[in-house]
């Protein structure tokens, strides 16, 4: 789901659906990001109001966690594991090749908005490293050719 212009009522509905939980802030942020692919700035005061927190507190929580984004990603997201087990199987060379080919740095999105490349620290595929994820699909023993093929298949 990718709505570009959330309305306050839509966001409030997402917030309300999580309010029955103990400690609902992370579930709320996840729900909003799941819906809009990012957590829009306009959502923060609505969350703060619902949880009786300050906007600064909500911002503080959101910015603490790597997962939550202020802006949407490209249409496709490639995550490449940078952790030790993957490094032992050449993950550094793999990620460099992918980033160079797309002309990106970590976290960057291609100018046409098609691909974002993000680092990830461990997908739990350490016995079939290096590991990557293309639009949610896991790839073990990844190489640059395989990642390109997956991206072309997805496009």
């Amino acid at each position: 789901m990718r709505h570009s212009n959330p309305t306050p009522d839509e966001v409030r509905a997402l917030i309300d659906a999580e309010l029955h939980r103990e400690g609902p802030l992370l579930p709320i942020l996840h729900a909003i990001q799941h819906t809009y692919d990012h957590v829009p700035e306009m959502a923060l005061p609505l969350i703060a109001e619902a949880l009786n927190l300050t906007r600064a507190e909500v911002h503080g929580v959101m910015s603490f966690y790597h997962d939550f984004r202020k802006a949407p990603t490209g249409r496709h997201v490639v995550k490449i594991c940078r952790a030790e087990a993957c490094q032992s199987m050449g993950a550094n060379a793999l990620s460099q090749a992918v980033l160079d080919k797309l002309g990106l740095d970590w976290g960057g999105t291609t100018p046409d908005g098609s691909v974002t490349v993000e680092p990830v620290y461990c997908l739990g595929l350490c016995a079939c490293a290096p590991a990557a994820m293309v639009d949610g699909k896991l790839i073990g023993r990844a190489d640059a050719a395989r990642l390109s093929a997956e991206l072309e298949g997805a496009a």
Binding site: P24, L26, P27, H30, F68
Partner: peptide, 28 residues
């Protein structure tokens, strides 16, 4: 019981920061 999904902070594997995160706070 319930599943609570983390948000990409490695330090939340430390038990007290995990508890803060569970409560909806920064995982300090």
């Amino acid at each position: 019981m319930e599943v609570r999904v983390g948000a990409g902070a490695y330090v939340c594997g430390e038990e007290t920061s995990l508890l803060n995160s569970l409560e909806g706070k920064r995982g300090v």
